[in-house]
């Protein structure tokens, strides 16, 4: 235990010495890892915010069935009962003509003058059909809409189906592009970091040789290098998080319109503490693997 601590002290000192003695190499690794994490992080933010929007708006995903005018009340009551038994339906709520008008006026505000000239309320009564939580998707909407089609007393059906489908497709696209990009970036970063550290290893070949001649094991020689990689990676991760936070705070407000379109006016969310830790940890992992790869490849060189 004591010996392990003593050696840890030596490793930390040696790693710090290494970082100090090759600031350019270190900077290249930090920047490489930082840049790729910024790109991956930006995609992750976009994706998670888009997915988050779906979750939050899932509650208000419902099918509206407009009722034919002039049907007896008993018919309507029977219809409500039938609709309630359709698979995937959670709840049915009747929106009367008056309620529809009130909603319309509340929604339009001062523009309600639009309807004032009319004697009669032109808005139809409707059924607001909420789906079971597990059915709140484009597919779930489609199934319910199909079951309701052609039921007597329903004049028209409306749902957010098209919108949801489009949005889901967009989310899937962002996810695929982000995932592909992440894999490519991780590989590219690993390659660059590996070669950068390999240069550092080559530059210190004499040192490594002498260490082995006085009885240092491979692990003993390697650990400071791996620690350097770890520190560089973590630094890249921290830099990426700070940069993303800066962009998030300063640049996003300038694109309100675009965000409005993508996120439907929901306040975008930044990373949670756990996600920040994951990003920094990912950087550290890249640095670690990069240096380990550099060493296993670099011994014979």
């Amino acid at each position: 235990m004591r010996r392990a601590l003593v050696q840890l002290g030596y490793f930390v000192r040696t790693a710090l010495r290494g970082l100090r003695s090759s600031p350019v190499t270190s900077a290249v690794s930090v920047v490489t890892i930082g840049v790729s994490l910024v790109l991956v992080g930006a995609f992750a933010l976009l994706l998670w915010n888009m997915e988050g929007l779906l979750d939050r708006f899932g509650d208000s995903l419902y099918v509206t069935a407009y009722l034919e005018e002039g049907r007896p009340v008993e018919d309507r009551r029977a219809l409500v009962e039938i609709v309630a038994t359709v698979e995937g339906v959670e709840r049915v709520r009747v929106v009367s003509k008056r309620e529809a008008l009130e909603r319309f006026q509340a929604g339009v505000g001062r523009g309600s003058a639009l309807l004032e000239g009319l004697d009669e309320n032109p808005l139809p009564a409707s059924l607001e059909i909420t789906l079971l939580p597990e059915r709140r998707s484009a597919e779930g909407l489609r199934v319910v809409v199909e079951s309701l089609e052609g039921l007597p007393g329903i004049s028209d059906l409306a749902s957010g189906q098209d919108w949801v489908e489009g949005y889901l497709r967009a989310v899937a696209l962002v996810r695929a592009v982000g995932l592909g990009l992440s894999v490519i970036l991780a590989l590219a970063t690993l390659l660059i970091v590996t070669n950068t550290i390999r240069l550092a290893v080559l530059a210190r070949r004499d040192e490594i040789e002498i260490l082995t001649l006085v009885g240092a094991s491979r692990t003993f020689v390697a650990i400071p290098f791996v620690m350097e990689g770890l520190v560089q990676g973590a630094a890249g991760g921290v830099a990426a998080v700070l940069l993303l936070l800066g962009l998030f705070r300063l640049v996003l407000p300038g694109f309100e319109f675009g965000m409005e379109f993508l996120l439907g006016g929901v306040t975008p969310r930044f990373f949670s503490v756990g996600e920040i830790a994951a990003l920094v940890g990912g950087g550290a992992g890249l640095g670690l693997f990069g240096s380990a790869a550099a060493l296993t490849g670099g011994w014979k060189a």
Partner: peptide
């Protein structure tokens, strides 16, 4: 160095 490699 030769002491450090043995963890002194």
């Amino acid at each position: 160095l030769s002491l450090e490699v043995v963890g002194t």
